[in-house]
Design a protein around this nucleic acid. Structure first.
Lengths: 249, 249
DNA sequence: GATACGAACTGGTTGAACCAGTTGTCAAGC
DNA sequence: GCTTGACAACTGGTTCAACCAGTTCGTATC
């Protein structure tokens, strides 16, 4: 009788996932995959709550999240309309978009176009860090770099990703710019989310060690150009790797 | 008896503003102004709904918005905790932060630090537009530039702001890059929100006409460097204006 | 002293009722 | 015939009261 011990009614949901999480993910997928087009009206809250066997209040929470992600817009009395996320979206959509996208060519184009903004943000971080980093920031950067070298020796993709993330966080700290940090957060999060959803991309990242060393040395010597060049070199290589990986498929 | 015709109970709210809008704005202000510190626990949903004389469900919607704005995090069974928005925030907070911030020096620093990322994004947009703009994009850019000239002649700050926005939107369209558009959206929105909340900043923006003309001509001639230089010049002047305006206060 | 239980929190979910905008229908009036 | 206006019948917004489900911590038990 274990099978009947499930909730009276309800959506399938992974552990740690709430009901509105599950509904949100499902509707997200239907919009990002193109099953729902911009301008389409979603069924009414009452219909959706019947379809998903969830209460209307719970369903409204899912709709709120879609609204905040700019995937839909709601108007009192009129209903919920699917928006053109390509036009109105933000980087928070990136990971989910790459997962649910049905057009392989577009997916590849988006991945390639992501690298340039990432590089530019990192360059800005390096420039600001060279002007503003404190001794404590240098320590954190050096520690992150060391952790990165060790992670790369371990060959464990998850550890490498964590180390890269730590390095970038230290760099963001060292730049001491609220707007830049706020601009960088969604992008770094998108990359993190992306590597989590599509771990196959990880091996394409070139060696991190030479990069962190170069940036750190440049910053220490006060040689901004050298530091920026080191960062740029890493990402140019990453760009090329990705290009050649996407070229055949 | 008109005064008693208000809702039975309820928060004061402007017309067109929903109840959770009002609660959200209030809590937002308390967090951004520093009245609530990172790590603090919010009162429980039941307490808050009593305080605000709103139902628990309505209050939950406000909390959801705070959560999505990364101002708080909620955990089942534990409560709602104020997060360190300076670390975890995004550009969506910018307008509200500048409005509610209590530290004038920090506010000025944030404004100044905003200009550089904005310039860099616009430079990237120009570079991509030079590679990818279609004839239709050129038409839209030219139309936006013309509208900008007219708006500047009218001396109406609101119209000038709208024209700048239209120009930037056309530039984003012309760049044909989903990630860059998604990165630019929150920033453009932040600037829009900012000018709305603090209209006094508007007059500091230098003439827009020379800028749009320079960029457009550069793009048409295929001279990327000239186009980028024109954009950069505009924003360097804007930067200087803002610096000198903030220097005395 | 370690462990297990349970009360008293917390947020998550439910469903029914009602309030409040929006839209289209259809009859009354011109 | 055309306009006008009231009224259904939608839609989302809000409220309420109850219950489900994690978390914490004190206390009774072994």
């Amino acid at each position: 009788m274990a099978a009947t011990r499930r909730k009276r009614k309800g959506v399938e949901r992974s552990p740690g996932q709430t009901t509105h999480d599950a509904v949100y993910e499902a509707l997200l997928g239907r919009i990002l995959s193109g099953a729902l087009h911009p301008g389409d009206r979603l069924p009414s809250e009452r219909e959706l709550s019947a379809t998903w066997k969830a209460s209307r209040n719970t369903l409204r929470e899912a709709i709120r999240r879609l609204e905040h992600a700019r995937l839909v817009s709601t108007r009192h009395g009129q209903g919920v309309t699917v928006q053109d996320f390509r036009r109105t979206g933000t980087l928070e959509l990136l990971g989910a978009f790459l997962q649910y996208a049905t057009d392989d060519a577009e997916r590849a184009a988006v991945l390639l176009d992501l690298l340039e903004p990432r590089l530019h943000i990192i360059e800005q971080l390096v420039v600001l860090a060279s002007r503003r980093a404190t001794p404590a920031d240098f320590e954190a950067l050096a520690a992150a770099a060391a952790a990165g070298e060790e992670a790369e020796r371990s060959q464990d993709p998850a550890r490498v990703a964590a180390a890269q993330d730590r390095w970038l966080q230290a760099l963001v700290d060292a730049a001491h710019s609220l707007p830049l940090r706020w601009a960088a957060n969604p992008l770094l999060e998108a990359v993190r989310d992306l590597l989590e959803r599509l771990p196959l991309l990880m091996p394409l990242e070139p060696s991190f060690t030479a990069y962190t060393r170069g940036v750190l040395e440049g910053l220490r010597r006060g040689d901004v150009d050298a530091a920026v060049a080191a960062a740029r070199h890493f990402h140019v290589v990453a760009d090329q790797n990705l290009r050649s990986a996407l070229a055949p498929g």
